[in-house]
Design a binder for these strands. Structure first.
Lengths: 184, 184
DNA sequence: TGGAGCGGAGAACGGTCGTTCTCCATCTGG
DNA sequence: CCAGATGGAGAACGACCGTTCTCCGCTCCA
C-alpha cells in the first residue's frame, strides 16, 4: 500500500464514519480500524484530524456535484434539466444510510468552531447554487428563480434528513414546477 | 438563589453558549462561569449535561414558537398571516448572534448519537409545520401548500445561517406569495 | 452560643482521544 | 548474510472534560 492508496482508503473510511456518526464521535483509531491504515501512516498523510475532515468535505463536494451533474445530463430539455435536480435529490434521499446533507450537518457541528469548515460549507452551497443558476439561465428563465429553487432544495435536504423520508424531494419538485410555469 | 432561579440562570447561560459555540465545545465549567450557578447546584438540577441540553431545546422550542405566533397575531388578513411567517424569519435572521436554526444545528451535531435530541428536533419541526398548516387552512388555501411553504422556510434558515444574510427570508416570502397567488 | 446542615469553590477522579513514541518484524542493497 | 531503512502494532503522553468529592464558611434555630 503506497501513500496515495492509503490516502484514498483513509478518506473512504473517514467520510463514511464522519457522515454516519458525526465528526467528534469518531476517533482516529476508529478510522485506523475501518481503513486498515496505521496511525503512523494516517498522520503522515493528514498531519491532524482537522486536515482529514477538510479533505473529506473537499472530495465529497467534487463527487456530489459530479453525480448531480451526471444525472441532470441525462435530460436534454432545458426546463426538465432544472426539475431533474429534485429527481436526483429523491434518489439521494433514498440511499442507504442517508442522514441529511453532510455540509449542513458539518456546519451544525463544526461551523462555530472551525472557520475552515464554515468556509467549505459556504463554498459548497455557493457552487450548488451556481449550478442551479446556470440551469435556470440555460432554460431562459429569470435569474430571480434561482433563489427560491435553491431554498426548496435546501429545505428538502433538511426535512429528508430529519424525517428519513424521500417525500420532500417530490414536494420541492412540484413547487419548483409551479414556480417555473408561473414564469413563462 | 433558590432551585428554580438556578435552573433559569443555568438554562439562560447554557442556551446562549450552546447556540453560539455548539454543545460539545461548551463544558460544564463554562456554564458555571457564565451562569454563576455552582457545579454542585447545576448537577442537582440537571443530573447530566445531556439533560441540560434537552431542557434548553425544550424551553427554546416553546419560546421560539410563541414569538412567531405573537408576530403573526399582529396580522388579521388570513393570507397575510401566512406571509408574516417569512417577515418574522427576517427579523430573527437579523438578530445579533444569529447562527442558523438551533434545531438543525443540534441535529447535525448530536442527531446521530442522541436519539433524545433527534426526537426533539423532529418534534419541533413537526410543530412548526403544523402551525404553518393551520395558517394555510385558516386562509382557505389547499393543504398541499403547507409542504412547499415549510421547505422554503427551512431552506431560508439554512442559507441565512450559513451566509449571515437576511435576504433568504425575503426570497422565501416572495416565492411563497407566488405559490399562494397561484392557488387562488 | 453552638452545632448541624446548606452551599460554594475548586481539587480530584476516571475516561476519552489526538498525537507521538517504542519496539519489533520485514524488507533491501551489497 | 548483514546493516540500515521502512512500516505496523500498540503503548504512552498530555490535554480535556463530565462528574464527584472535600473542605470550609455561613446561616439558622434551639
Amino acid at each position: 500500500m503506497d501513500g496515495a492508496d492509503a490516502r484514498e482508503r483513509a478518506l473512504d473510511a473517514a467520510e463514511r464514519l464522519f457522515y454516519a456518526r458525526g465528526v467528534k464521535s469518531v476517533d482516529m483509531d476508529d478510522i485506523r480500524a475501518a481503513s486498515g491504515v496505521s496511525l503512523k501512516r494516517l498522520y503522515q498523510v493528514f498531519p491532524a484530524k482537522e486536515r482529514l475532515v477538510e479533505a473529506c468535505l473537499e472530495r465529497r463536494d467534487v463527487q456530489w456535484r459530479a453525480r448531480l451533474a451526471a444525472y441532470v445530463d441525462g435530460r436534454t430539455e432545458p426546463q426538465e434539466r432544472v426539475l431533474a435536480v429534485y429527481d436526483w435529490l429523491r434518489e439521494w434521499f433514498g440511499e442507504d444510510g442517508f442522514r441529511g446533507c453532510a455540509w449542513i450537518n458539518a456546519y451544525g457541528e463544526l461551523g462555530a468552531t472551525s472557520e475552515a469548515v464554515a468556509a467549505q460549507v459556504r463554498a459548497h452551497k455557493e457552487a450548488f447554487r451556481g449550478y442551479l443558476g446556470a440551469l435556470v439561465a440555460d432554460a431562459g428563465l429569470p435569474a430571480a428563480l434561482t433563489g427560491p429553487l435553491f431554498l426548496l432544495a435546501e429545505g428538502a435536504m433538511v426535512r429528508a434528513g430529519v424525517t428519513g423520508s424521500t417525500d420532500p424531494a417530490a414536494e420541492a419538485r412540484e413547487a419548483a414546477r409551479v414556480l417555473l410555469s408561473r414564469s413563462r
